[in-house]
Design a protein around this nucleic acid. Structure first.
Length: 325
DNA sequence: AAAATTCTCAACCGCATGCAT
DNA sequence: GATGCATGCGGTTGAGAATTT
């Protein structure tokens, strides 16, 4: 593993980019795509300029209140993992989020008497332990997200093995094969495990169930078999893992009929994983807000989500010295 | 109006990792 | 296995803008 010589090469320009250079880079990307970074700048600099500035799908300008809240919450859970945080904020780059955190949000938290590293009130960090409900909630969120990340890491591992198995042993059912092909297509190049999960856990459930092709699911059976399909032959183990994964803990909403089972699980999974997924999980798990899925839309769920965000808003905007998180 | 200070954010740095040779 | 390079990531810097004195 050699170190990249990068910008210390003689003859390569450094410093701010000029509009002419931007045009040159854009023209180069249009012709060659964004994979080969060799101009009169070092490749690293070109790539950075493209990913942080020139890319057309980048949203610039002020962060919305919701984006701010998401950053604060994600930072509480993930720490300085800017790329992971950025994966939950469409069109924002990790660099931009990092800058915004360092220049705005961090200071704001400090001003409010909150340790920006631990997200706990300063006096709490000093040993004054009167954890508030919000603090307990955050702790719960952290555990929840931690468990979810762990489960997802396992899923990724198993799926890789599983993918190999499918490649070697094609199924007799074209339908199953199609589902698996489209499912695995979603797994290509996940930008992060968080990102991956949002798009694919529901698909995991679907693929697993179609694979089972059963017409007689019951709640436990269904969840157990999903876990079994994903985690191997031990259905109990699979069931345990799946039940312990909040993202997939929707078996309360599963009805006995197979089609409803599929619809409900898929719908519930999709809902519980919708951006920002961990928030939904938190709201559902901690505030018992997970609404019944009545096939007539998600109005109740959306309302609860709004309530949840209002609560966060109140907490964040509460007067200085109030317990936050 | 000018100097000093603070703020912002694009860009750079250094490290880790993966891949090809 | 060693080497060279590309890529990704998080920390840091510094020039220019904005604000204050």
């Amino acid at each position: 593993m050699g170190r990249s010589p990068c910008c210390d090469k003689v003859g390569l320009k450094k410093g701010p980019w000029t509009p002419e250079e931007d045009q040159k880079l854009l023209a180069y990307i249009q012709e060659h795509g964004h994979g080969s970074w060799r101009l009169q700048r070092c490749g690293k600099s070109c790539r950075l300029r493209w990913t942080n500035y020139l890319r057309p799908d980048i949203k610039r300008g002020k962060f919305s209140l919701q984006e701010e809240q998401t950053i604060i919450q994600l930072h509480a859970l993930l720490g300085n993992r800017w790329s992971a945080i950025a994966s939950h904020l469409p069109k924002r780059t990790d660099n931009e989020i990092k800058n915004y955190w360092n220049t705005h949000l961090k200071k704001r938290l400090v001003k409010m008497g909150i340790d920006p590293t631990t997200h706990k009130p300063k006096n709490h960090a000093l040993g004054c332990t009167h954890p508030t409900k919000d603090l307990a909630n955050l702790s719960h969120m952290a555990q929840w997200e931690s468990a979810r990340l762990e489960a997802e890491a396992r899923i990724v591992h198993i799926l890789k093995v599983w993918q190999g198995t499918w490649a070697r042993a094609p199924t007799t059912s074209n339908r199953i094969k199609d589902v698996n092909i489209s499912f695995f297509n979603q797994l290509e190049s996940p930008t992060s495990i968080l990102n991956f999960s949002d798009n694919t856990i529901a698909a995991v459930g679907m693929a697993a169930m179609v694979h089972e092709n059963s017409s007689s699911f019951n709640n436990n059976n269904c969840v157990g078999k999903m876990g079994c399909s994903l985690y191997g032959d031990d259905q109990e183990e699979g069931k345990g893992i799946m039940e312990n994964s909040p993202a997939i803990s929707m078996h309360d909403h599963v009805s006995p009929s197979s089609s409803t089972c599929c619809n409900n699980i898929y719908g519930a999974a999709a809902d519980s994983l919708r951006f920002p997924s961990f928030m939904d999980g938190f709201a559902a798990a901690d505030l018992h807000l997970l609404p019944p899925h009545d096939h007539s839309g998600n109005a109740l769920f959306e309302e609860n989500k709004i309530n949840y965000w209002s609560n966060i808003l109140n907490v964040v905007n509460s007067p200085m010295g109030s317990p936050v998180f």
